[in-house]
Each structure stands twice: as C-alpha cells, then as structure tokens.
Design a protein around this nucleic acid. Structure first.
Lengths: 187, 187, 187, 187
DNA sequence: TATGAATGAGTCTTCATTCAT
DNA sequence: GATGAATGAAGACTCATTCAT
C-alpha cells in the first residue's frame, strides 16, 4: 500500500464519517436544520473538512440521504427473505409493524419526503422504498394489491409520525388480508 | 359603523392579507422557506407590518397554517354532503381523486405534516384532516374501515406528491370496495 | 368647574400616571430599559398617550427622574427635622442606614447617576441629593465635614448596591464621629 | 514559529483589537451604548468579525470590561508601591487625586458599576477595585479605616463624575488623616 | 491537502415616532 | 385630543462559502 492510497483511504474514511454524522443529524433534527458547524462537531472533524469534500451543503445533504436510503434497502431485503418463508398477511403486518417501531428508519423516510418537497431531484430517494416494496410484494400477490399495500404502508408511516405510535398491527393484518385477497381475485 | 370599527376592519383586513400571502407562499415554496421579506413583498405591505400583528415568524406561520386547515375543512364538508347522497366506493374514490388533483390543498396537507415534524405543537393541524375524514366515513362504514381508508388516503397523498400525479381512481375504487366490505363484515 | 378644566384635570391625571409608571419601571428595570410600550402597559393607558404628552422618550424619562428626585427631597426634609432634634453621629448614621435600606430610593439615586452619565443635562438631578445633604449637614457641622459626609454617603450607596446590603451602621457611626469632630476642629 | 502559531497570533491580535475598540467605546459612549457596527468601525474590521470571536454582544462587553479591570489593577499596584515608601494621608490623597484625574480610568470604573447594575454577573468586576484598595490600605492602617477610605474613594469618584472635576486633594488629605488616625485608635 | 478565520449577505426582531382617523 | 396601526431604521445574530496559510 503506497502513501497515496493510504491518504486516499484516510480521506475516504473522513468523508464517510462526515456523511454519517450528517445522516445522524438528519434523523435527530430534521433535514431542514443542518449546518456545517453542527456536522463538523458531530463528526469531530474540522469545519473545513465539511466543505472540502462536498461542493455545497445541499450536496452533503444529498449524499447523507443516499446513505440513509441504502440503509433502508437492507430492511427491504430482510422483508423479502422473511416473506419468502411466510407471506401471510399477518406476517407482512408484523414486518411492517417492526419497521414502524424503528425511529431511525421512519425519520429517514420522512426526511426523504421532506427533502424531495424542496428539491425534486431528491425524489428518487423518496420513491425507492415504495418501488422496492412493490417489487417485493409482487412476488406474493398481484401488482395492484402490491401497490395498494405500499400506498397503505406510506399512510401508516404518516399515521405513526403524527400519533407518535405505530399503526395497529392487528388492523394491518385485517387490511392486508383484504387487499391481498381482492388483489388476487381482481387482477 | 363607528370609526373604531372602521379601524378594526381595516387593520383586520391587512392582517388577513398577510396571513393569506403567507399561506400562498407556503403552498408555493414550502413551509420551511418563509421569510418576513418575501411575505411582505407578496402581501404588498411594508416589512414592519409583518411583525406588527404577529409575535414571531412562527406565530405567523401557525396562523397561516390554521387558515389553510380551515380551508380543508370545507372540502371535508363537501365530501360529507356528497357521501350522504351516495356512499359507494366509486363515489368515495371519485371525491378523493378530485381532492388529490387540487394542487393547493395537497400542498397544504404536506405543509401541515412537514411543519409538525419540526414543531409538535402544530400536530393538531396535521391530524385534523385525518380525524375529520374518519368521522365522515364512520357514518357509512364501521370505524375500522373508516380508519383504514383514511390511512390509505394519506398514503395516496404521499404517492401523489412524489409521483406528480394522483393515485389511480380506478384502483382506489377497488381498494375502497374491499376495505368497506371487510369493515362491514368484521365489526 | 367648566368642561375644559375637567378635561385638563383628566389629562393632567393621565400624564401623571404615565410619569409614575415610568418612574416605577426605572426602579424595576433600570433607566436604560424603558420603552413606550412597557410604560403604556404599566400605566394602563393607550400607547399613543405616552407620546402625546411628551416630546420624546427622553423627555418622559427626564420627567420621571424629576418626579423621583422630588421624592428624595422628602427624605432629606425628614433627615433635616430629625437632625434638628439630635445631630449626633449615631443619629446621622441611623438615618442614612435607613435610607440605604430603602430599595426604591437607592435605585432612584443610581438612576440619576446612570442617566446623567449618558445625558449631562440630567446631572442636576444627580447632584440634588448631594447638595441638599451638604446643606442640611452644614447646620450641624462645618462645610468641609458636611461635604466629607455627603461624599462618604455616596460611597456607601455604591457599596450597598454592589454588595446587596447596606454599609454597616456601626462603622458609619465611628466614621461620622471622626469626620464631624475633625471638621469642627480644622475649619 | 510554525504556521499554526502564526495563525493563532494573527487571530488573537484581531480579537484583541476588537476588545480594545470595545473598551474604547465604553469609555467614550458609556457601557450601554455599544453596537456591533460601531465596534467594527472603530476596530476597522468587518462587521462579521465582531461576532466571530464572541458568542454575543454581552460576551464581548464582558471581555472588554475585564480588559479594563485588568488595567485598573495596574494603578492599584502603583499605589501599593508608592504607599510602601510613604503612607501618609497626604501621599494617599495625592495618589487618589491622580487617579481621579485620569478620565479613562474613572469612566472605566463607572462602566463596571453601570454594567453590574443591569447584569449582576459583572459585579465582581465592579468590586475588584474596592476589594483591592482595601487590601492595599490594610497594610498601613486597620481594616475598618481601610474600608472607610475605600468607601470614601468611591464617593469621591461619584463626585468627580458628577462635577466634572476631581474632589479636592486638600480635603482628602484632612479626611484621610482623620479616618486613619481613628482607625489606628479604635482597632 | 487541510484548516479555520474571515466575510457579508441575509435573517428575525424591536421600537420610537408619525399620523390618519 | 385620543388612539393605535403603520412605518422603517437599526440592531443582534447566523452561517454558507471562500481562501490565505
């Protein structure tokens, strides 16, 4: 390993720690309350580092949101695996209920939405979860039901944020049962 | 009409025009991008007027959001009236589809959500639509189905914002049919 | 009594209540923290009244300080009367100690000083107490001792403000005894 | 000298020049009439620099007052040295008379007093001179006389400010003679 | 390349004073 | 004369971004 690569590694590590700190602050304070100073403090790097590696605060924000979106992909994969074993409405409800209990992830989801409200170029981050969920569900039900469930799950996210508690697992079980059944019949 | 009431009327009118301008800007630019200067320009009043009647920008924001929320109540009442005549899933889907086509109103709804994300005291504004819709729907189906439809409709709102087009009316018809039927059975 | 005089009386009463409220606020918040709004609120008069009867806030401040200075004259007269009966150092110390315990009056004295620091035209208000005390004391001791005691008493005022408790009465007795004795001898 | 220390030196120099400018303005205009703008103009630095190194205007004010207080300590030390050689009342009167002739220093003293009137946390600055003077005097007379002289000297400061001329040196000589004699006798 | 001081544009907010009613 | 809405000047403060070192 040459010195140059060492440098690069070090630099990349620092860059990553800044992205991570930014992501943490997005979860904590919301996506509209970022400042270079707070990010530098959280990441324990000099202020200059937060402008050195990123063309602007918006750029850094976008990268942090992307980082968070990648994280959400992991949940999706877990859901995919679980549904392969058991795709009953109750199982699906359970999996989504767990997701709604994860403060970090639902705040990340909110951040995608809020950010894309101000900057349309960030919309793909906000639709990634929706599209992914539809794809996973489509393996077990028809496309229309999959979409219905995905839309419902976004509604449940909103409910959870506004009520400070996840939408009822029992009701989700019933609802998913109906949506999947009907989906199967109608498509 | 005495001079005093004339005064009050004029003053109230100006205050209202500031609130209206703020509401317009919320719809146009999002709830996180308000400044006294832009509000004053939009309302065509001097900068000082925007602080004369409101204790802070947050206060003004809250009043503008309340004004928008009151506006949404009107739609709800229309839906209430329409459903009294015909509460079929297709009719419900049609009414919500119309709502989702109204850019101003869905952006208002988003503003409630986004604002309450940063300031919990604004949450009641964000839940007002949800609670109202549940109340209206409860006249025609059981409570659980009413909630399911309301949650779904929030999801459809998110879908609409993120995709720049309302969620399919046809699919909503199917979905509501299932949710209402099931609601009827289970309760 | 004609209507006009009634008006005048009413107007004068209102003006006086504004001056009184201003004086109260000077004691409470210091002479540098006056606003028309707070004065109007304290006096329970409309905002306009506080500018109608006074050419400026500085004018109002000056009148309020004059009102307070007049109040201090009363103490001086009491001291004068008391000293006529007993002009011993102990009596004098007791009288000044009482004065130093009166929060309102010492804050008034501070206000004169602070105000005259910013506006030399107010200096006469600040020297009125000093000059009056010298005059009263001069009846019982020579001029030089009278001045010495007056200067000392201003120092004791400063001490009292900074230490939040009056300067020792016992020490004042000793000190006055020396200053008066010496004054008698040396002049 | 490394680059880093060069940086620090330059930065510290600028910070110091801002504090110095603030101190100058306190002497010139009084402690209640500071603005960032005037400070920046006086220090010949951009407006932003006056907020870069100080958390608030109050913080800057406090640092400027501390700077002035440190300056006053120097006089005290001179007095200490002089009194070691000759602690006669006449010498003491001469030293204090010199002090009262120094416009900058007496205005600094006034600033401590006025500032601590609005912000009790600044009181230690205002009592520093008094406590120091008592300590120095205590080497040459008893504690009570030392306190008496210090109180008197605060009174003489007030006199000087209000009359625009120092209190008489001759009278101070007499007064100190009496206070020290009595002190000597009573302790 | 890394750093953080420097800058200045822009923000909210306060309030004396004016003046229409 | 009485009122309080209207105005705008001025203030404190924040912070993204630049750039000298």
């Amino acid at each position: 390993m040459t010195n140059i690569t060492k440098f690069e590694k070090k630099s990349a590590a620092r860059k990553h720690s800044i992205i991570k700190a930014t992501a943490d602050l997005i979860i904590e304070n919301g996506v509209n309350n970022l400042t270079h100073r707070e990010i530098a403090a959280k990441a324990k790097v000099p202020l200059g580092s937060t402008t050195q590696h990123f063309s602007s605060l918006d750029d850094l924000k976008a990268q942090a949101l992307t980082y968070l979106a990648d994280m959400l992909d992991d949940i999706l994969q877990e859901i995919d695996v679980e549904l392969a074993r058991n795709s009953s409405p109750a199982k699906l409800a359970q999996l989504l209920y767990e997701y709604l209990q994860d403060t970090v992830r639902i705040h990340a989801d909110v951040a995608f939405f809020v950010a894309s409200t101000d900057d349309p170029s960030l919309r793909p981050l906000a639709t990634r979860w929706f599209d992914g969920l539809v794809a996973v569900l489509s393996k077990h039900t028809d496309k229309e039901a999959a979409q219905a469930i995905a839309v419902f799950s976004d509604g449940a996210l909103v409910y959870t944020i506004l009520h400070n508690e996840p939408f009822s697992e029992a009701m989700m079980t019933n609802i998913f049962a109906n949506l999947m059944k009907s989906g199967g019949k109608e498509s």
